[in-house]
Amino acid sequence: MRSIILRTMTMYLLPLLLIFSVFLLFRGHNHPGGGFVGGLVASAAYSLYLLGFGIDKVRSIFRIQPIKVLAFGLFLAASSTVFPIFFGKPLMTGVWYEHKLPIVGSLGTPTVFDTGVYFTVLGVTLNIIFTLFEDKE
């Protein structure tokens, strides 16, 4: 599988796909996209890299344990649901920052939730893929 074409391509594709995944994440509020798809694209980027260079190389560029990423994502998502309570609103109500931000667009608890989903999906997928490859090697 370690073909030179794949290697060269992934060198360029990895950053591109990562940027694209973030784009999908923030686009998701009003258009097709969102944290789930974004997370999948990001993990696809790393999986491609893994196919090209092998598990050790991926570990050297993705130094965090995937399960920590998963935990971080869950934490973000769960916090965003609890956050409205401090504003006297029921759980899971959307709380928005009134001004628009560059890149992110409108910022609010749903955005944070989506970001959490992004990291959760990334963590889960990478965890599965890493485990499968370590099993093999």
């Binding site: 399960i67 920590k68 998963l70 935990a71 971080f72 869950l74 934490f75 769960a78 649901t81 609890v82 309570i85 006297g88 609103k89 029921p90 759980l91």
Partner: peptide, 21 residues
């Protein structure tokens, strides 16, 4: 508000998440 009603769900959830770290 009655947000405390959700806490029996939220507490174990956060305990679980923090343990994942």
């Amino acid at each position: 508000m009655n947000s405390i009603l959700a806490m029996p769900v939220v507490f174990p959830l956060f305990t679980g998440i923090i343990m994942l770290f």
